[in-house]
Design a protein around this nucleic acid. Structure first.
Length: 445
DNA sequence: AACGCGGGGCA
DNA sequence: TGCCCAGCGTT
């Protein structure tokens, strides 16, 4: 491997470093297409000053005309006249940015509107309970984000209730990393700092034909440096949003609309593709080998306790551990299986779990039915759920034998309907409801 | 630096 | 089905 002196020039937000003389100036026009730039190459990389000017102007002009009408922008847009107003904007930016982490705009819109209606300010949010927060968040995924929002709101209120204004102070808030700090500081407080998300990585990788591994720390650092060079000092918030908006709407992963792109004239990937049809804009950023999905199996028992009338029945819920997958969320009793498992094995495992943890005896069964199977896909796990309905008589519940190892509770159908359940748990419950409905239709016929 | 963490939409 | 999305905290 070729050795190069480490470039110690750190990314300075909002400043433009002077172009340096290099033996190989990658910014020079190239007589013929080159394959792209490796990790070592981009250490020396920067935009020319005239390029910076053109990109800023074109992108902002495009953004002013084409930006999407999004609920958080309605709050952000326009200049704040006092600190209170700036804080309200910052709160809206914060909530939207956390929701938007790894989540598409279209999905977020409704969640954002409901959230802001329920908790219009950081002070309102700080008074909320984790149960309420989970309820509002249910279905969005990465539930840790919701917990951090609540913790962050409490931190801010405890510190006096004023929103942190700088990247440095914002970074201290729970759940606010480099990206979110940059977004809030630039959009709400006009600090000339860059942001780098998946969109910005893609746009810059294409502009500069960066073929280095986009997940590599050195690459990410250099993209931050390049984004810092680009960010418009006068309109940093708009510029950052424009860059991301471009990535979300035109410079998309699979089919970019280069003919409509405001910075197509500055795009090396597009220029290369015109010279050589075998080179594609979509070759950048380079693809990263994906990790293999784990296959998990779980027996799930929707335990219904009958207390006289059918309407008075209650369901057993168990709280998941405070760390790991779906941390702290409620679910139906479940037992992890070691691969595919037949109904006898599953029931045995469930019986053992119900007996040892909740003192529920399988001798009190009114009804036990196999409801079905459902495969729930996480990014890293393929979870096959075996779902059964188990109806028990309440008078036979041996509360005395309960071991308080697991936190659990019995809830009625109404509570269950409104609770913050993960999508997989909600799916299991819906399958049980549908099963019952089908069965009662058959009986009434 | 590597890893864990949800869910959905789209080609 | 595979891909990837307005990332962050922990180890």
């Amino acid at each position: 491997m070729k050795k190069k002196p480490k470039n110690s020039t750190a990314a300075v937000a909002g400043t433009i470093t002077k172009p340096k003389k290099r033996t190989r100036n990658v910014c020079e026009p190239k007589p013929k297409p080159e394959p792209g730039f490796t990790t070592e190459d981009i250490e020396d990389f920067q935009f020319r000053e005239d390029e910076v000017g053109e990109i800023r102007a074109s992108l902002l002009k495009w953004y002013d005309v084409n930006k999407r009408d999004l609920p958080w922008r309605r709050i952000n847009d326009g200049d704040a006249t006092d600190d209170g107003e700036r804080d309200r904007k910052a709160y809206a930016v914060w909530v939207s940015e956390i929701m938007l982490q790894q989540t598409r705009v279209q999905t977020v819109i409704n969640y954002f509107n409901r959230w802001m209606e329920k908790w219009p300010s950081v002070h309102h949010l700080a008074q909320a309970s984790i149960e309420e927060v989970n309820e509002m968040w249910a279905g969005l995924g990465y539930y840790r984000r919701a917990r951090f929002l609540l913790e962050g709101a409490k931190m801010i209120v405890e510190e006096g209730g004023r929103f942190p204004k700088s990247v440095n102070d914002l970074r201290k808030v729970r759940g606010i990393g480099e990206y979110t700090a940059g977004a809030i500081a630039s959009i709400a407080f006009n600090e000339a700092v860059p942001v780098v998300d998946g969109n910005v990585v893609r746009v810059i990788a294409r502009l500069k034909t960066i073929s280095a591994n986009p997940k590599d720390t050195a690459t990410v650092k250099n993209i931050w440096r390049l984004a810092g060079q680009l960010v418009d000092v006068h309109r940093p918030g708009d510029f950052n949003q424009a860059l991301m908006e471009l990535g979300a709407t035109l410079c998309t992963p699979l089919s970019p609309s280069c003919s409509s792109c405001p910075v197509s004239a500055q795009c090396s990937a597009l220029s290369d593709s015109k010279h050589n049809p075998s080179m594609l804009v979509t070759d950048y950023p380079t693809k990263v080998a994906k990790v293999r999905q784990r296959h998990d199996f779980s027996a799930i028992s929707v335990v219904e306790i009958l207390e006289g009338e059918e309407d008075a029945s209650k369901f057993l819920l168990v709280k998941r551990p405070e760390e790991g997958l779906l941390a702290g969320l409620w679910e139906f009793p479940s037992v992890s299986m070691n691969g595919e498992a037949d109904v006898v094995t599953r029931r045995q495992a469930i019986d053992d779990f119900l007996k040892s943890s909740f003192g529920l005896s399988s001798s009190n069964v009114i009804e036990r039915e196999e409801v079905g199977e459902y495969v729930h896909i996480f990014t890293h796990i393929r979870l096959k759920m075996y779902i059964e309905l188990l109806v028990l008589r309440s008078r036979d519940v041996h509360r005395k034998e309960e071991k308080a190892v697991t936190s659990y509770k019995y809830v009625d159908t109404k509570t269950l309907a409104s609770m913050g359940l993960s999508t997989g748990v909600r799916k299991a419950y819906n399958m049980v409801q549908k099963f019952k409905q089908t069965r009662s239709n058959l009986i009434s016929r």
